[in-house]
Design a protein around this nucleic acid. Structure first.
Lengths: 137, 137
DNA sequence: GTGAATGCAAATGGTTTGCAACGTA
DNA sequence: TACGTTGCAAACCATTTGCATTCAC
């Protein structure tokens, strides 16, 4: 896992807890809330404290191993693997659709051209309605 | 103000407090945090309670008069006026650049075409680096 | 007049912090 | 060994809630 290397490079120690949390995010591959991560962590390693989880998430985010996004009113975490992609999250059923990165390229360029603004496009989460839910409405 | 009409239509009562909060968002035209809105409100109308502000913000959001977005780790509110536009918020200096809505149209169409996904594009806030800050780096 | 909205105060709950014990490098 | 990291428990603080009073309609 790249984050192990990244942590070392940045001078952080590699503890079982940190490895665990990175694993959880990587294994599930989903957007997890802090609460969910705490639950998973304590299941796999009884005794881990939530404060450790919070501290580790901050650390991993700062190290660029993990992305924090907003879904509705809550923050979720997702591992940052090579080969960026974005997510479309349905606000009705909660389903997540992965989406190719290059769809955002035109927008990125327009914003740079028209406003000189350089958008963060590392890991975008957009909300909306998925195909199924859009039909129902 | 349209939101006054909207509130009435939805059967909500029009109280001085609600009008005040709508005014604050409209007058400043900025992205304000709940805290900032509470401060402004209590300044203009001593005695308003923060719980009223929170309740009103929820109400206005639900009524579609106000948008709630994320900037960094905090939520901010912005009035929803006709003539949507989006915001680019610099993560370094905090400056906000307004951006035309139609720049997002191509993306919207690609997502609909490729994934059948209908993105919420009412009021998008994207983070990144503004022209000035990008140069410095 | 009536039900909804407000202010107040207290509860809530997610997140953070201080600190002694522990473990990695 | 030395310093960063953990677990624990307490502190924090933004947000929410219950309830009596007040007010818009």
């Amino acid at each position: 896992m790249t984050c192990v290397i990244t942590l070392r490079q940045k001078g952080y120690k590699l503890t079982p807890q940190r490895r665990l949390i990175a694993d959880i995010l990587h294994d599930t591959g989903a957007h997890l809330t802090a609460d969910e991560i705490i639950a998973h962590a304590q299941e796999r390693m009884p005794g881990v404290d939530k404060s450790t989880v919070y501290r580790t998430l901050d650390l991993l985010e700062e190290a660029g191993c993990v992305f924090k996004s907003r879904i509705g009113d809550t923050f979720v975490y997702h591992h940052a693997e090579e080969g960026h992609h974005h997510h479309l999250v349905c606000r009705k059923c909660g389903k997540t659709v992965e989406c190719a990165e290059d769809l955002f390229a035109p927008l990125e360029q327009s914003l740079a051209r028209d406003y000189g603004f350089h958008v963060d496009l590392h890991h975008v989460v957009m909300n909306g309605l998925c195909q199924a839910c859009a039909k129902e409405t």
